[in-house]
Structures are given as structure tokens and as C-alpha cells.
């Protein structure tokens, strides 16, 4: 089957950095597949997400290829890729009503006039289960809680019905209870829309509950990739074993 996304020999080096942030990464993502990218600080996991969405600064030296065999053309941000960042406070515009921020993505990507885009935005705010979406669309980011802001960011990411949703530590800044709600929301939306998901996280347990497949990164290299069940029950590398052992759950 043709994958949606195909990375071959992907390497990234930031300007002035001694070591590459990513090196020799070969990775496929099937349409509708949920792939978790796991790693600690400096593993290259966010660099990978940004390389896929072409969000890296112009000054990086990039090697290898990011190909989209599942699309007829190169993936467009907003249209084919929706991106959710860790901190919704900095990814949302502080002086624009949140409904307009969702509508703007629809207007720009779906050839939709502003009236229709605003209507669709309210539908999306409802889909991400925000209360009183028509009223809330008028609110500014600072009037919302962290969890509500992240729901707005998710609405903006999926409004154009992208084929791929990238969530880069999208729940790390939230408390445990809100994190669980956002995880359930992402899981439901991905299933409803048949989107592929690239779920970038430092938390292997969180990722394992959502992903079909897990790819473990360390120091810019792909250490191990396997189906979630296989990786959790039979990890092949010491590093994956260490990450699993360091998980602090309530039942051990």
C-alpha cells in the first residue's frame, strides 16, 4: 500500500550546532495510521515533526527526502497538515477572537468566504466540545483556560480536513485531568475524520494508549519502531526498555 508520508535518510542540522538534530531517519506513515514519536529532550522528535510540516527555519541544513506518495502534490500546511503545538498561548493570536482564528484557516484553505468560514468555525468549536460555541467564538485567548485554548488550536488544525494531524507535545503543558480530556478528543477526531496522526511525546504510556505504532528516538536517531503492542511487551533495545521502566504509573 502506498504510504501517505515517506521519510528517507532525513537529516537536519541547525545552524551553528555541532551535532545533527536528526540523522538518517527512514520512516513511513500510512494513511489513517496513528504513529507515536517518542523521545527525551534533544532526541530530535520535534525537529522531525517540524521537518514534515516544513516549519524549520530557513537556515537549517536538511538532507534526505520528505515525500508524500499518498498525495498528488506536496503537502500544504493547514490544508493537508494540521499542526497542534505544545503551548496554545503562543500558537494563538492574542488579539484575534478565537472563532476568527479557526475561520481564517478555512477561508485560506477551503476557498470559502468569510461568512461561511465563520459558520464552519462555530461548528468546529462545537466539535472540539467547547461550551456555547457561538458565544465562545467571540472570546479572546486570554479569556479561555489552557485546555480550552488547546481545543481551539485543535479546531483550527482540523478545520480544513487535513490528511495528517501532527500533535507536538500537545498535552504536556496541561494538568493530568485536562490532558486525559484532550487525548480522548484527539483520538475521537482522528477516528471520525480518518486522519493520520503523528503524536510527538516524551510520555511513552500516553502515546501507547493512542498509537498503532511507536517510533523511539534518541540523540537524533530512530532507535526502534514497532507496533505498539510489540514495543510495550517485547522492546528490542535497552533504551526502549529503560523508557518503559521509568514510566510512573499507579499500578506497578
Amino acid at each position: 500500500m502506498t504510504p501517505l508520508l515517506e521519510l528517507r535518510g532525513l537529516g537536519v542540522r541547525y545552524k551553528g550546532a555541532v551535532a545533527p538534530a536528526l540523522e538518517g531517519v527512514d520512516l513511513d506513515l500510512a494513511a489513517g495510521e496513528r504513529l507515536a514519536i517518542i523521545g527525551e529532550s534533544g532526541s530530535g522528535k520535534s525537529t522531525l515533526a517540524r521537518a514534515v510540516a516544513e516549519l524549520l527555519p530557513q537556515t537549517v541544513i536538511q538532507q534526505g527526502t520528505v515525500a508524500w506518495p499518498g498525495l498528488d502534490q506536496k503537502a500544504r500546511n493547514g490544508r493537508d497538515i494540521g499542526f497542534v503545538f505544545q503551548d496554545p498561548a503562543s500558537s494563538l493570536d492574542p488579539v484575534m477572537p478565537v472563532g476568527d482564528q479557526v475561520a481564517e484557516v478555512a477561508h485560506a484553505n477551503l476557498d470559502m468566504d468569510w461568512r461561511a468560514a465563520r459558520r464552519l468555525a462555530v461548528e468546529l468549536l462545537d466539535r472540539v466540545r467547547l461550551p456555547e460555541p457561538a458565544l465562545l467564538a467571540q472570546a479572546y485567548p486570554h479569556q479561555l483556560s489552557g485546555g480550552q485554548k488547546q481545543r481551539v488550536a485543535i479546531a483550527a488544525a482540523i478545520v480544513a480536513r487535513p490528511r495528517l494531524l501532527i500533535a507536538d507535545e500537545a498535552t504536556s503543558a496541561l494538568d493530568t485531568i485536562v490532558q486525559a480530556e484532550i487525548m480522548a478528543l484527539i483520538s475521537a477526531l482522528v477516528a471520525e475524520d480518518g486522519m493520520a496522526l503523528l503524536f510527538v511525546s516524551h510520555d511513552i504510556a500516553l502515546a501507547a494508549n493512542l498509537a498503532d505504532r511507536v517510533a523511539v528516538f534518541r540523540h537524533g536517531r530512530l532507535v526502534e519502531q514497532a507496533a505498539t503492542a510489540e514495543l510495550v511487551s517485547q522492546p528490542r533495545t535497552d533504551y526502549s526498555r529503560a523508557l518503559l521502566a521509568a514510566h510512573l504509573g499507579l499500578h506497578a
Binding site: Q179, A180, A205, N209, A227, E230, V232, S233, G249, L250
Partner: peptide
């Protein structure tokens, strides 16, 4: 109860793959 339910656990896979 909400905090306990929200704490991520590693999924348990009964049969080895």
C-alpha cells in the same frame, strides 16, 4: 477519582506478539 482515572498507564497486552 478523576486524577486516578486520568493518570496514563502502559497498556497491558495479554498475548505476546
Amino acid at each position: 477519582r478523576a486524577l486516578v482515572a486520568a493518570t496514563p498507564e502502559l497498556p497491558v497486552f495479554k498475548e505476546t506478539v
